[in-house]
Design a binder for these strands. Structure first.
Length: 311
DNA sequence: CTCGATCCCTGGACGC
DNA sequence: TGCGTCCAGGGATCGA
């Protein structure tokens, strides 16, 4: 499941392997995950991939304008701000997406939905069994508007702005971490890992959190994301990067996927509950439940006893 | 505003 | 071996 570190790993790989290449032609197969397939077929052929960057969980394949001179200079032009990008192919990997170059002669993997033929005998192929991904060609104001929907980059966010966004909401912190309008790029794994690190229960409301706690949480999140990027992401299910290499960070998960195992800090059993519709892994001893969760638990226990005594 | 529910989709795990 | 069922979760959407 590609989240920020996994997408960063793929984007860096593509920046190294396909930036500067020109797209000669496009072949689409399944298109239900593409915003406007016709626009892709119309706009991409003949265009040069100037640069590949990550934006939240998206990859932005920035396109050089058709008249631009190809070559190293064009490929290394640094994009300073999202609103400076004129045209781009947005690619979201969803749960099972993979975007990687292949030699043209190689057989097509099952679920290959998009093929971009490149000018060097390779093809950039998008493979996505579940099609939870998204692909869109956007330019100008439409591109700007799309990018503005998202919150701060987690690695660049300041404690003050993070704190402001979280504390003004009564939603649960787990939901807020997953909300791409608050921070862009955090998914289920890194939300759980950072909450464990900061000893915050996933069901705490944003408004209930102290600024100091949120400062610790953001620092923890940033440290975990940087570490995960260094290890090329977490490979659970079958994530591999643009070179086909698996990540290693899953070896370092402290709570994700460890239900029933012992907490590395206090040896209590890691629990899994559903928060914000997602599996949430946490240590019940290190991450204290908010009052209303405790009340709900008591209520359930009372109900359980009533049922038992009726028989 | 925030919630849960539902849907999208396939593959892997699991029980029988 | 095969078949049915459940689950994984990022995101959109809808009604409460």
């Amino acid at each position: 499941m590609p989240e920020l570190p996994e997408v960063e790993t793929v984007a860096r790989g593509l920046q190294g392997s396909v930036a500067g290449r020109r797209i000669l032609s496009v072949t689409l197969r399944e298109t239900d995950f593409i915003d406007d397939p016709v626009a892709i077929e119309r706009e991409l052929p003949g265009r040069q991939i100037a640069r590949v960057e990550r934006f939240g969980k998206f990859m932005l394949l920035q396109l050089a304008s058709p008249s631009a001179v190809s070559g190293p200079a064009a490929a290394t032009t640094k994009l300073l701000a999202a609103d400076a990008v004129q045209e781009a192919l947005l690619v979201h990997l969803g749960m099972t997406g993979n975007l990687a170059p292949h030699f043209a002669g190689q057989p097509l993997a099952k679920h290959t939905h998009v093929t971009f033929v490149l000018d060097d005998g390779r093809e950039l192929r998008y493979v996505d069994p579940r099609r939870f991904g998204r692909m869109a060609y956007l330019s100008g104001e439409a591109l700007t508007a799309e990018l503005l929907r998202f919150g701060a980059e987690p690695l660049l966010a300041t404690a003050a702005e993070f704190s402001r966004r979280v504390r003004s909401s009564r939603a649960r912190i787990k939901a807020l971490l997953l909300d791409q309008r608050v921070l862009r790029g955090v998914g289920n794994i890194y939300a759980d890992e950072s909450l464990w690190s900061a000893r915050i229960h996933p069901a705490r409301s944003g408004a209930s959190l102290k600024s100091a706690e949120l400062g610790i949480l953001l620092k923890a999140l940033q440290k975990i994301l940087r570490e995960a990027i260094r290890m090329r992401g977490s490979s659970i299910s079958d994530f591999v990067d643009a070179e086909g290499i698996a990540g290693d960070y899953q070896q370092h998960h402290k709570v994700y996927g460890r239900e029933g195992e012992k907490c590395f800090r206090c040896r209590a059993k890691i629990r899994r509950i559903i928060v914000a519709g997602r599996s949430s892994h946490f240590c019940p001893a290190c991450q204290r439940a908010p009052h209303r969760v405790k009340l709900a638990q008591k209520k359930m226990k009372r109900a359980g006893r009533r049922r038992a005594s009726k028989r």
